Deep mutational scan, measured.
Amino acid sequence: KAKLLVLLYAFVATDADTICIGYHANNSTDTVDTILEKNVAVTHSVNLLEDSHNGKLCKLKGIAPLQLGKCNITGWLLGNPECDSLLPARSWSYIVETPNSENGACYPGDLIDYEELREQLSSVSSLERFEIFPKESSWPNHTFNGVTVSCSHRGKSSFYRNLLWLTKKGDSYPKLTNSYVNNKGKEVLVLWGVHHPSSSDEQQSLYSNGNAYVSVASSNYNRRFTPEIAARPKVRDQHGRMNYYWTLLEPGDTIIFEATGNLIAPWYAFALSRGFESGIITSNASMHECNTKCQTPQGAINSNLPFQNIHPVTIGECPKYVRSTKLRMVTGLRNIPSIQYRGLFGAIAGFIEGGWTGMIDGWYGYHHQNEQGSGYAADQKSTQNAINGITNKVNSVIEKMNTQFTAVGKEFNNLEKRMENLNKKVDDGFLDIWTYNAELLVLLENERTLDFHDLNVKNLYEKVKSQLKNNAKEIGNGCFEFYHKCDNECMESVRNGTYDYPKYSEESKLNR
């Protein structure tokens, strides 16, 4: 008799109507990190870190770059004969040098303040090359056809396309004075040089004057150069050297050249137009028929994500570079809930034993079982409120962090190594801060989002509990077992918050 009662009780308990509160689960393989956990499985997430590029040089917003090819900045601007293909260059979106560009200054020497000139050019998007001192009329008392084997072109001695090597005419090199007034309405880049012979005999042979000088002056520039005559090792078949100089001439300003020898005179100059998204990159990537809004030396990035880990040097509207390998923000729920887990921000989770793959029309909802059958029903209101809140948060985070910009490298010469090392340390410090901030932001927001979901499920549970009161009992896994019969209409009233407690209280009292 006792065995019969136990079996009867078990049958009745199993047959009781139930309603459970749960949440969506799926077959997603997404994982995120939080402050407290690593690799948390979630139903949905968004990636904030771009880690792919196309490996190509592309047009930037429809404008092609200027590819210097086998030449570098120095060779292009001075007019190395091997860089003749660059003479027609007028406009570009950015400038590309190759790491091993070999054609710079063909006659050995240095372009002074080269690093600063590169910085200036990094904001130039177009130029006009014009004859600042016409070759045939500007130097009537001097020979202007100086050439050298060091600047050979097609097997013949030649010289820079933008400079003139002035030497004596006959047996004399009379003092020369020439000036140019900038009437271009924009900055003009003027380049010139000073020749330093290897011996007094060479000085006399070329310029006749043993104590020659070169003077260059404008409103913002004033220097006097004296040739340094000295024996030097042979470089590119030359014992002599040429140093090259430049200045930016403001609109309306005048530049005056005065010399008694050794002047490498300007022939062509450049009127410059600035462009905020221009820059110089060093890259071996090849040019393709493609378009982008962000270019790196590795390749083009076409992404609206706020961060990238491809390269710190970028041109155009680019994500911020960070050292992170993963920045994924959760938008959905835990896919593998932890039992009795309390989140960092106070939300209680884990009283549900598992997510439901059968509930596909919402994030949170119900599963019921009664004599009429069983089924899932999503709670659309709480789901939609959660979707709206999380979507707004993700968009806000992306908008705040998605300050796209150009980031170019800084140039230092060989004598500025300590400054370069200090600059690298400062840049590394800023990069570490950006990386830390980005990672911390994602970790915190992921923790908040998961706790937010847990709290929403808990609130749904409490909503049902407050309606049923003692007409049902909690069975410990997020479910309630009714003390009365609850048909589909009754189940719907529980879900929509209109459950009639008094209607079922007498039946429940008897069954309790």
Rank of each mutant, 00 (worst) to 15 (best):
L8S: 04
L66E: 05
P266K: 06
G109E: 11
R129I: 08
Y180H: 08
D51S: 14
N145W: 06
E131Q: 12
I280D: 09
E136D: 14
T226Q: 08
S126D: 14
S45K: 11
L87T: 09
L49G: 08
N183I: 08
Y23N: 01
C151N: 04
V190G: 00
T167C: 09
D51I: 08
V214W: 06
Q120E: 05
V147C: 00
L189R: 01
F133A: 09
T29D: 02
W246L: 01
S152A: 10
Y9L: 09
N209L: 06
E187V: 12
S218A: 15
F11P: 04
T254D: 05
V194Y: 02
L4G: 01
N178V: 14
A259H: 12
S219I: 03
I19C: 00
T14M: 14
V46F: 14
T18Y: 11
C151V: 04
W192Y: 14
D171F: 01
S199G: 15
L249Q: 03
L111N: 03
R90Q: 12
H196P: 00
E131H: 04
E116G: 09
T43E: 07
L176M: 00
S200Y: 12
N209H: 13
Y107H: 06
A10G: 05
K3S: 11
Y9F: 15
N100F: 15
E119M: 11
S101N: 05
L68H: 05
H44L: 09
G185D: 14
S273E: 09
L117D: 09
I281Q: 05
T260I: 04
H44S: 15
L121F: 08
W165E: 05
A259P: 01
S158D: 13
L248G: 05
T74C: 13
R241V: 09
A265F: 02
W165T: 07
N26E: 02
Y207W: 06
G193K: 02
L48R: 07
L60G: 04
P65Y: 07
S93C: 10
K168W: 01
V235S: 13
I112L: 12
N47T: 14
S93G: 15
S157Y: 14
F159R: 04
S137G: 15
W92P: 04
K56E: 00
Q120D: 07
K70Q: 12
N262S: 08
S138F: 11
G79W: 08
K70C: 04
G170R: 01
H24Y: 12
S125I: 15
C71N: 03
N80W: 05
N162A: 01
S126T: 08
A269L: 01
E202C: 09
L272Q: 01
E116Y: 02
A25E: 00
A269I: 00
Y213M: 14
N182K: 11
T148Y: 03
L4W: 07
E277M: 02
H24F: 01
I264F: 01
L166A: 05
L87K: 13
H153K: 10
E131K: 06
S198N: 05
E250N: 09
H196I: 12
G109H: 02
L206W: 11
Y107R: 05
L4Y: 12
N222Y: 15
